[in-house]
């Protein structure tokens, strides 16, 4: 594996399966009396959040604490960051504090990549969502959830499984990370959205495109609904909320068109009544809550694989820096 997790495209098939298999082992922990492992004792992980995100931040924090890491929450709000301190100075500060890893959420696409490539800090950089670029741990937890339902078992991938992703692909970091990872794992991805919410050049992405949700539903094993922000309406991406949900929203009638084994996923937070009706959101086929639980396991796996073994911080200062982390055995 690479030393950082910035993009889902950084993960080879072996890397991805190793993370999913490790997460599967770590998932057992939630059923134990003591939900804690000593593995990352003495490692310092900083959650550097420039954007509000209670869910992702909490998920990472639980994962870090279950692995006994020292957790520092560095929130941009109310800190010197909001007073004009640059990303560089923040990173230098964290480096001076001895951060072994920085989990970063940033409103600017590419900020984690910048951090990883710079010599501002030496720890691992884990992307917890950057602008409209990527959210790789979300894609991992989505793949983990799909594998459990569609092809359970260690070492299994998602070969041939049909995944339909519906909604605001243009602004979605979840969609971008998912298309990379799902392809790596052998799944077939179809994006469904109004043309205004698909990025230019998407015809060259490794996926199918459709403007017609109803035609795709019967050929879907996993349906992922993306959040659509109401503000998009004012920027003329679609005429009205009502028209959007009629054409692209998930409802009870459409649920019936899915194959019996298919699941409905949502990365949250859901906008009920917009892209998904309460009937679907609360149905047993909707995995939204399960995804949250799986997020902790997947993030533990990523943290363990990046920080659990020997890292740069353990190496002498003059040792050559490598861009990859080897996995023993």
């Amino acid at each position: 594996m690479k030393r950082h997790l910035v993009s889902a495209a950084d993960l080879s098939r072996d890397d991805a399966l190793l993370i999913l298999d490790t997460a599967e082992e770590l998932a057992q922990l939630s059923g134990r009396a003591v939900k804690k492992l000593p593995t990352l004792r003495g490692r310092t992980v900083v959650n550097l959040f420039f954007e509000d995100s209670t869910r992702t931040k909490t998920s990472f924090e639980v994962a870090e604490k279950r692995l006994s890491a020292d957790v520092i929450n560095f929130s941009a709000k109310g800190s010197s960051v909001s007073k004009g301190e640059s990303l560089k100075d923040t990173a230098l500060t964290l480096q001076a504090m001895g951060a072994d890893a920085v989990v970063i959420r940033h409103h600017a696409s590419g900020a984690p990549a910048r951090l990883a490539q710079s010599d501002w800090l030496h720890g691992s950089v884990i992307n917890a969502g950057d602008g409209t670029h990527e959210h790789p741990t979300q894609a991992l937890l989505d793949a983990f959830t799909m594998r459990r339902h569609l092809n359970p078992g260690a070492g299994h991938d998602l070969a041939g499984r049909r995944v339909t992703i519906v909604g605001d692909v243009l602004h979605s970091r979840v969609a971008r990370s998912n298309v990379h990872l799902l392809n790596t794992l052998g799944a077939q991805v179809t994006f469904v959205a109004p043309p205004t919410l698909l990025p230019i050049g998407i015809e060259n992405w490794p996926c199918e495109i459709s403007y017609d949700l109803d035609r795709v539903l019967p050929k879907t094993d996993a349906l992922m609904m993306l959040r659509v922000q109401r503000e998009r309406m004012n920027a003329a991406f679609f005429p009205t909320e009502r028209e959007y949900s009629r054409r692209y929203g998930m409802n009870g009638l459409r649920l019936a068109q899915l194959p019996g084994h298919a699941i409905v996923m949502h990365p949250g937070p859901m906008v009920r009544g917009m892209e998904i009706t309460a009937e679907v959101a609360d149905s047993p086929r909707c995995t939204a809550v399960e995804q949250v639980a799986n997020g902790v396991s997947v993030r533990m796996a990523v943290l363990y694989l990046l920080l659990g073994g020997a890292t740069l911080a353990d190496a002498p200062a003059d040792a050559p820096r490598t861009e990859t982390v080897e996995i023993a055995q």
């Binding site: 298999d21 082992e25 593995t39 073994g309 020997a310 996995i327 023993a328």
Partner: peptide, 21 residues
């Protein structure tokens, strides 16, 4: 029982794949 996560020499080697407990 997989004892990987409890080893005292974790930092001497790259991270190891977990076995099933």
């Amino acid at each position: 029982l997989d004892i990987t996560m409890y080893r005292d020499d974790l930092r001497l080697k790259p991270a190891r794949a977990l076995e099933h407990t």
